[in-house]
Computed example of a mutant assay.
Amino acid sequence: MMTRQTFILTLLLLAIPSLLHAEYATSKLETDIPYRSEEGLDDYAKQQCRLDVHTPPDKGFATVVWFHGGGLEAGDKKIPKYLMDNGYAVVSANYRHSPQVKAPVYLEDAAAAVAWTFANIEKYGGDPTKIFISGHSAGGYLTSMLVLDKRWLEPHGIDPNDLAGAIPHSGQTFTHFTIRKERGLGRETGVADDLAPLYHVRKDTPPLLLTTGDRNLEFPFRYEENALLFKMLESVKHPDVQLYELQGFTHGNMVEPGVLLMTRFIEKHSKDD
């Protein structure tokens, strides 16, 4: 049964991440792997279309493809420490940014990074049936679009329903404000067209975990946008979607506790049974 849940900051929450990391052995990091064929790419695309792969030492592990934040205009794929050594692989991808490119190029890049993961993660010891996608802010927007709108993965022969799950952290669910900016529209102009996750609500996606910071500390409307997406998924009877509001956390510092929730979500949805 779908539920809306509120997550409250406690001393226990602050202690759990260090305990969690203690369960797992240190893993291996490989950086700057191109995920697109470089033939025909310009120098900027060759620079940006790269990813890092952080893998645990065991076999058959789950993998999360991670997209950084930065408003689709900035950011870097460097894997945050709290994303490492949680028992699953992390494939952290850069993508091209606005204004050097415009929509939907960054969506196409994100889809190509996911396709690379499906094609290659087994070589690293991962299970291609246990691939999740996630990201923060702009990365959360990319995550929601890839899992809800089938257009982006389809050219790679992948259905979003092949994913094990998706975890957008504080992503926009309206058309992203940078895309509105590219169109000459202001941030306060509400748009939910075919480049909005809300436009593609369907009940047959993989499991979804939505997280935001405190509605009173977050970017304006960020919690409300995610609450609307949650309610719309609930209305079409999606069988496995959750929303957590991380009370006491801002947009910027909600990621670490959000990753704690994500880790438990991945553990639940990557069990062999």
Rank of each mutant, 00 (worst) to 15 (best):
Thr189Ser: 11
Gly190Tyr: 13
Gly190Phe: 15
Ala192Arg: 13
Ala192Phe: 12
Asp194Ile: 04
Asp194Ser: 06
Leu195Asn: 12
Leu195Trp: 06
Ala196Met: 13
Ala196Glu: 12
Ala196Val: 06
Ala196Pro: 04
Ala196Ser: 15
Ala196His: 10
Pro197Glu: 12
Pro197Trp: 05
Leu198Phe: 04
Leu198Thr: 10
Leu198Arg: 06
Tyr199Asn: 07
Tyr199Met: 01
Tyr199Ala: 08
His200Lys: 00
His200Ile: 03
Val201Lys: 05
Val201Leu: 11
Val201Arg: 07
Val201Pro: 12
Arg202Gly: 01
Lys203Asp: 13
Lys203Pro: 02
Asp204Pro: 09
Asp204Lys: 03
Asp204Ala: 00
Thr205Cys: 11
Pro206Val: 06
Pro207Cys: 13
Pro207Asp: 07
Pro207Tyr: 12
Leu210Phe: 15
Leu210Ala: 05
Leu210Ile: 09
Thr211Ser: 12
Thr211Gly: 06
Thr212Phe: 09
Thr212Leu: 05
Thr212Asp: 02
Thr212Pro: 01
Thr212Gln: 02
Gly213Glu: 00
Gly213Ala: 02
Gly213Asp: 00
Asp214Ala: 05
Asp214Glu: 05
Arg215Asp: 06
Arg215Leu: 04
Arg215Ser: 15
Leu217Asn: 00
Leu217Phe: 09
Phe219Asp: 14
Phe219Val: 08
Pro220Thr: 11
Pro220Tyr: 01
Phe221Thr: 15
Phe221Val: 13
Arg222Ser: 14
Tyr223Ala: 02
Tyr223Leu: 01
Glu224Tyr: 02
Glu224Thr: 01
Glu225Lys: 04
Glu225Gln: 15
Glu225Asn: 05
Asn226Phe: 00
Ala227His: 11
Ala227Glu: 14
Leu228His: 00
Leu228Phe: 01
Leu229Tyr: 10
Leu229Val: 08
Phe230Glu: 04
Phe230Trp: 14
Lys231Leu: 08
Lys231His: 10
Lys231Cys: 07
Lys231Ile: 01
Met232Thr: 09
Leu233Asn: 09
Glu234Asn: 13
Glu234Arg: 13
Ser235Gln: 15
Val236Arg: 02
Val236Pro: 09
Val236Asn: 07
His238Asp: 06
His238Asn: 12
His238Ala: 02
Asp240Phe: 05
Asp240His: 12
Val241Met: 03
Val241Pro: 08
Val241Ile: 13
Gln242Asn: 07
Leu243Pro: 00
Leu243Ile: 11
Tyr244Met: 05
Tyr244Cys: 09
Glu245Gly: 07
Glu245Leu: 08
Leu246Thr: 10
Gln247Leu: 10
Gly248Met: 07
Gly248Trp: 10
Gly248Val: 01
Thr250Gly: 08
His251Gln: 03
His251Ala: 12
His251Phe: 10
Gly252Glu: 09
Gly252Val: 00
Gly252Ala: 09
Gly252Cys: 01
Asn253Glu: 08
Met254Pro: 03
Val255Ser: 04
Glu256Arg: 12
Glu256Ser: 10
Glu256Val: 13
Glu256Pro: 04
Pro257Arg: 14
Gly258Gln: 08
Gly258Pro: 03
Gly258Leu: 05
Gly258Phe: 15
Gly258Trp: 11
Val259Glu: 02
Val259Ser: 00
Leu260Asp: 06
Leu261Ser: 08
Leu261Val: 09
Leu261Thr: 14
Thr263Leu: 02
Thr263Tyr: 01
Arg264Lys: 14
